[in-house]
Each structure stands twice: as structure tokens, then as C-alpha cells.
């Protein structure tokens, strides 16, 4: 497992190095660069900070200071199914915290964490702007409105089933090929 992660990170760094050629050293490019990395790879691996610092010719600490300031930047890879629970005002008054707790309970992780198998990650977000559908949870790119604690289990089960179906498909393809 560790080796694959290392290999992944090496590939990410290579990609970043390639992309950085398009950016100048102007300090104003720093946040766009970090956004580019996050967008391509969903998080900022530790070595990417150093890489960006080298490119910009500024101390790594400066890059780190900026990256830790903004909500957008993540330092750990998210799960394959990132779950965001909206805790904006409208969702809050409709007991979104109970939804979040229920996800935490069912997934066995706390908000801000990724499950050990990297299948799920759980996050709270301030507002996804679908207040009339409160409470809202976002799984991957899909927004689920009118959430209820009792819907959490079904939602997770559906993801699990989809995953198993996909695996079975793969298996089948493999068998057919061989």
C-alpha cells in the first residue's frame, strides 16, 4: 500500500513540475498554482509545497503559510467518495448536525477524515447554496436535498452496491477476455 502511495505521489510531482512551466514567478500566481494542483490531484502532497517554493524562489514556509490559511486546500487525499455535509444557516436550523453525526457514526470516521481504505471522506462545508432543499449533503458531485438521518444508511448502501456492481462488471470482462 505504502509503495503504491509513494508511486502515486511521485507521479503527481512529475505532473506538477510539468504544469509549473506555465506559471511565472509573480507572487500573485501562488494561489492559482495551488488551486491548479488541488484541482488536478484533489490535495497538496507535502513535497508539492517544496516544489512550488522552488519554482517561485520563495521559502517553503511562505507557501505552507498561505496553503494553511484557506479552506480550499487539503493536505490529505480525499476518499473516492467524498461526502460533504452542508452546515450553512438554513441546513443548521434543519438539524444538519444530526446528519453529519449520522455519517460519522456509519462511516466510523470524524469530519475532516478519510476512511482507512480511502473509500470515503467526510467534510463539513459552509453553504452549497441550495438552502431551499435543506438539509443537504453532497456525495461526489451529486447534491442530495431534504436529507434525513434515516437516509444516510441507504445512501451509503447505494454507493457500496454501485461499487460492487462495478467490480463484478470488471470481473466479468476479465473472465470474458481470458
Amino acid at each position: 500500500m505504502d509503495e503504491t502511495i509513494q508511486a502515486q505521489e511521485a507521479a503527481i510531482l512529475e505532473d506538477i513540475g510539468e504544469q509549473l512551466k506555465d506559471y511565472d514567478q509573480n507572487r500573485g500566481s501562488l494561489i492559482p498554482i495551488l488551486q491548479m494542483i488541488q484541482q488536478r490531484h484533489q490535495y497538496l502532497p507535502p513535497d508539492s509545497i517544496r516544489k512550488v517554493a522552488e519554482h517561485m524562489e520563495i521559502p517553503s514556509s511562505e507557501v505552507y503559510g498561505v496553503a494553511t490559511f484557506y479552506n480550499q486546500f487539503r493536505f490529505h487525499p480525499p476518499g473516492k467518495n467524498p461526502i460533504k455535509v452542508c452546515l450553512g444557516t438554513a441546513c443548521h436550523v434543519r438539524a444538519a448536525d444530526v446528519i453529519l453525526e449520522n455519517f460519522e457514526r456509519k462511516l466510523g470516521i470524524k469530519e475532516g477524515q478519510t476512511s482507512d481504505d480511502r473509500e470515503f471522506s467526510l467534510e463539513r462545508v459552509a453553504c452549497v447554496g441550495c438552502c431551499a432543499l435543506a438539509p443537504v449533503a453532497v456525495v461526489g458531485e451529486t447534491i442530495h436535498g431534504h436529507m434525513a438521518p434515516s437516509k444516510v444508511e441507504g445512501l451509503l448502501m447505494r454507493i457500496q452496491i454501485h461499487k460492487e456492481m462495478a467490480e463484478r462488471e470488471k470481473e466479468k470482462e476479465k473472465n470474458e477476455q481470458s
Binding site: 520563495i58 521559502p59 514556509s61 511562505e62 505552507y64 503559510g65 494553511t68 490559511f69
Partner: peptide, 10 residues
């Protein structure tokens, strides 16, 4: 000329 120290986090 450039600080090696930074504020981190928020």
C-alpha cells in the same frame, strides 16, 4: 529579505 518563518493555520 524574505521571512523563513510564517504564520500557519488560522
Amino acid at each position: 529579505g524574505q521571512s523563513l518563518l510564517t504564520f500557519a493555520g488560522r
